[in-house]
């Protein structure tokens, strides 16, 4: 009779469901793992930071304490953006530039550019280093195929521009949506 059949159908569905629930579980995990893997390059990994005389400079960090620790800049510049409030500022410390962006009443780190070989990244790279050294520090995968190594982590990228197989510029930059 029909009700028994329906009970049977239900049983089948349940089993089907449970089996597929298992499949769902595993696929969920797969998805998560994938996200985690992808994240290595873009979201979860430790962001690259620049440290100068013990002062850590991370992208998007509030800049006030950093400026205080760094002392007076050799030169300073500021820029407005059309129609918007706030100033983009840049500070030059001889061996590197520090750029900031405004948000609310505060300024935050937007970019750091290293300009001479007296300073180096936390991974030990400085201007003039060889291609091999860079690849050792950031992996050959990070090469963009033209002239630079680009390592992304979290909401920032570290760009190392090469000129004749020598490092010519090192730039930390915050990434915005």
């Amino acid at each position: 009779m029909s009700k028994r059949i329906l009970a049977l159908v239900l049983g089948v569905i349940m089993v089907c469901g449970l089996a597929l629930a298992g499949c769902g579980g595993s696929s969920d995990n797969a998805g998560n793992d994938q996200a985690a893997d992808g994240g290595a390059a873009s979201s979860n990994a430790e962001e690259y930071k620049f440290t100068y005389n013990g002062t850590e400079i991370a992208m998007k960090a509030p800049v006030a304490p950093i400026l205080e620790a760094l002392g007076e800049a050799k030169s300073y510049n500021e820029e407005t953006s059309c129609a918007f409030e706030g100033l983009d500022k840049s500070y030059f410390y001889g061996s590197f530039y520090l750029y900031t962006y405004p948000q609310g009443d505060e300024d935050f780190v937007n970019m750091v550019e290293l300009v001479d070989d007296t300073v180096k990244t936390e991974e030990g790279i400085s201007i003039g280093d060889s291609k091999e050294k860079v690849e050792e520090a950031y992996g050959a995968d990070s090469y963009n195929g033209i002239n630079a190594y680009v390592a992304s982590a979290g909401e920032m990228t570290l760009t190392i521009i090469m000129d004749n197989d020598k490092v010519s510029s090192i730039q930390y930059a915050a990434v915005f949506e």
Partner: peptide, 29 residues
């Protein structure tokens, strides 16, 4: 009735099978 029932069950299992598959595997996000 038995023939009808069989056809109905096949149809239900096919459809719900897809539904379960989609819910379990496609709706991962």
């Amino acid at each position: 009735k038995a023939q009808n029932r069989l056809v109905m069950i096949i149809c239900i299992v096919l459809n719900f099978g897809i539904l379960f598959f989609c819910k379990a595997c496609l709706v991962e996000p």
